[in-house]
Amino acid sequence: MSGLAPTTLPGRPASLRRRAAALLHRRPLVRLGLLLSAPMLWLVVAYLGALFAMLLTAFWSTDTFTGEVDRTFTWQNFQDLWTGEVYRTIALRSVAVAAGVTVLCLAIAFPMAFYMAKVARPRWRPYLLIAVLTPLWAAYLVKVYAWRVILADDGLLNWALGPLGARGPGYGLTATVLVLTYLWLPYMILPIYTGLERLPDSLLDASGDLGAGTLRTLRRVVAPMVFPSIAAGSLFTFSLSLGDYITVKIVGGRGQLIGNVVYDNIGAANDLPFAAAVATVPVVVMLVYIAAVRRTGALEEL
């Protein structure tokens, strides 16, 4: 056994870095641990931890005299929430607004995404994408206040509609839906665009070749194939709308959504436990929504 070659190759000193690399190469678990330690820390501590803290707080109460948080377990917040007529109305209204925004986004996003992915020349696509993304670079508040100016009584919209004898919706829920649609539209366009881009042109050709007109091809081939993308986009638009409370404050007139109730209870009412209880409502609604989307099989294909 004396003829064995030395274990280090000539001209390649085993530096610390090389030894570490060799160790990582031999131990996949160490490698995986290094890769995932930071994200896991973030996910567990900051992400799920905050959610858990919120859930826990929801079962506490606030002393009405001192304003101190009383950390004894109680269902009282959820009872108030369930029996309060006004909270049910606000929750339903919020879901309706989120659904309205999602439907409107889909109606606008689909033709736009289709044009970008299938009609426009390929070299124009990056520019169209940038055009869609540009609004996301501007500050949220600036955009919403811009809409406040547009929708004002003597604003741009009424000025433009005036000669036609029509008027804009003014501040209110309709305005809220409009502005939220504007805000979240890119989140619907992007997934649908990606889905359509992955759809081979030959499938559209084949459908036409087999005798289907444009509408039938859209219904029988395009719609079922980009459905997962539509579902993904709707998860964004629905959840973002459900959690919003600033837009409705600025252009919603006197209308209130779930987010406002949470905000008012944190601020004015100083009842953090009740705010936490209210905040579980959109979480539950989203879980139901995701479960419904999941049942269609759309999530597996994402």
């Binding site: 081979p200 030959s202 499938l203 050709d205 084949a206 070749d209 087999l210 081939v221 079922p224 194939m225």
Partner: peptide, 12 residues
């Protein structure tokens, strides 16, 4: 009718 190079079968 056409037989496509990538077959273009409808995957769904």
């Amino acid at each position: 009718n056409t037989v496509f190079q990538d077959y273009a079968l409808f995957p769904h």
